[in-house]
Every structure is written in structure tokens, then in C-alpha cells.
């Protein structure tokens, strides 16, 4: 069966499935007239692309550049994406970068390396009487019962007195983990047995001059250390909340 012109065009443009493509390739190879049509179709595409090639790398107009600068700045200052999504989001090497890598951050770990300002603020009740964090000399910073409830029951994106879960994911070891914001702090907590444990809590607002060694973003380091097997969808997260975060095993 001789392919018609539309089939040849779809073949040239890569629109056919493998079987159809193979059939037409064989027909074209056996018929110089078909080959000539295919060559012309390919040339038309080449010509169209050539028409605009000299202008594709032109600098942005001033107004558009300003708009893109504002967009990028907005993305960086209102990040609601997890740290592991920060890399390579933009062909420009920065346009789509989410904010983590640029945050001045104070590293605090579950061992309780608390920067004073953070510990003081986070321990104080905000609009409620019960704090999200507790600090003891023996154990350092820990999640309070209120934080345990919030982590278990709050859908991502819902703000509870300054505490907002940003995303939920399964770690490389199969643990359920949640990245959260507490006022101007970011943290990650993972579930062990029936209790959430703080993996990291870090100041992202620049309220501390403490810098992680080598300028490395502590959230990214913590995330890399945990590994991310997968990010939960809204539906999966809702299911986990409904069943009180049964341990994930991939």
C-alpha cells in the first residue's frame, strides 16, 4: 500500500508509531518518488527552523527581562517546593532555581545544635499555649506533642499557627518524612515507629549569621542523606493521614 502525502508528513515529523513508521520507511526506500517527497518535507522543516535561528539567542527586551527577574525573585522568596527539586530547573542555570541553595541557613540537627534565637522563638507559644518544639539540656530540640499531632494530621499547604507541612515523601529507607515550615524555620521530620523525629531544623530567614561549613545548604544535605524514594501525591498523603501514617515500605 502506497502511503499518502499526509502519512509521509507524519512519518517525517515523527508522529507515527513504530510499526507504521517501519512500513513507510520500507516503502520510501523502494520508491524514489516517495523519497523525493520525504526529502522535500524534511527540507521544509529545515527551512522553517533556519528562518528563525539567527534570532533565537537575542537578549531579552528590558521590560521582559525585568518581568523575568521579578518572577525568579518571587520563586526564590516563596519557595514551597522541596529541597531536592532545586537543581537544573532552569535552562538559564538560575531562572528556575528554587531557593534552598541561596538561603543563608543556620544548621540545626536533631541532636539539638540550637541557635539561640531559633530556640527561643520556636519554643514560645505563638497563638496557642502549646509549643511545637521543646528544648531540654538532655535531649536538645524535640518535637512537642502538638507538633506530633500536626505532622500526623495536617495536609500539606495547611497553615496551623505558623506550622505548615510543605511536602511529604518516602525516604530511601522507606520512612515517611515531611518537610515543614515553622514560622521562619524549615525542617524535616521522619516517622519512626509511632513518633516523628526531627531530622533537621534550619533558619532560612537569615536571622542568624551562622553558615554551614563550606556554604552547603543544610536542607539539601539532610535531604540527600535521607534519600528521596518518592514524593507523595495529595491523594497518597491523604491516605496516609487517614491511616495515621502506617510505615512506608517500597
Amino acid at each position: 500500500m502506497i502511503p499518502d502525502d499526509f502519512e509521509l508528513m507524519a512519518y517525517v515529523d515523527g508522529e507515527l508509531d513504530a510499526q507504521s513508521s517501519k512500513r513507510i520507511a520500507e516503502a520510501v526506500e523502494a520508491d524514489p518518488a516517495l523519497q523525493a517527497k520525504v526529502d522535500a518535507l524534511i527540507e521544509s522543516r529545515t527551512v522553517a527552523r533556519a528562518a528563525y535561528a539567527p534570532m533565537q539567542e537575542a537578549p531579552l527586551s528590558r521590560a521582559l527581562q525585568d518581568m523575568m527577574d521579578d518572577l525568579e525573585a518571587g520563586l526564590e522568596s516563596h519557595s514551597d517546593a522541596p529541597a531536592w527539586q532545586s537543581a537544573d530547573a532552569s535552562p538559564s542555570g538560575g531562572a528556575g532555581m528554587l531557593s534552598w541553595a541561596r538561603h543563608r541557613a543556620a544548621a540545626m540537627t536533631a541532636m539539638g545544635v540550637a541557635v539561640g534565637a531559633l530556640a527561643t522563638w520556636a519554643l514560645m507559644p505563638q497563638t496557642q499555649t502549646e509549643a511545637f518544639l521543646t528544648l531540654t539540656e538532655a535531649t536538645g530540640t524535640q518535637l512537642s506533642d502538638r507538633a506530633q499531632r500536626a505532622l500526623s494530621q495536617t495536609p500539606a499547604g495547611e497553615n496551623v499557627d505558623g506550622f505548615t507541612v510543605q511536602t511529604s515523601f518516602v525516604s530511601g529507607a522507606g520512612r515517611s518524612c515531611r518537610q515543614f515550615t515553622l514560622v521562619d524555620q524549615d525542617g524535616i521530620a521522619c516517622l519512626d515507629a509511632s513518633e516523628w523525629h526531627l531530622v533537621i531544623l534550619t533558619d532560612v530567614a537569615g536571622s542568624s549569621d551562622f553558615q554551614a561549613a563550606g556554604g552547603t545548604d543544610p536542607m539539601a544535605v539532610a535531604t540527600a542523606g535521607l534519600g528521596v524514594a518518592r514524593v507523595l501525591t495529595d491523594e497518597e498523603e491523604a491516605a496516609q493521614i487517614a491511616q495515621n501514617w502506617r510505615r512506608q515500605v517500597d
Binding site: 518572577l71 516563596h78 532552569s90 495529595d234
Partner: peptide
């Protein structure tokens, strides 16, 4: 995770600007 449509749009505009 829950990223707002607004944020997805902003990210898309930045990411696909050349296109």
C-alpha cells in the same frame, strides 16, 4: 506535596521561556 497552581505557572514561565 501541594504546590499551588500559581507557583506551577510561575515556574513554567521561567523554565520554558526560550520555547
Amino acid at each position: 506535596m501541594a504546590r499551588s497552581p500559581e507557583r506551577l505557572v510561575r515556574e513554567g514561565l521561567v523554565q520554558h521561556l526560550p520555547k
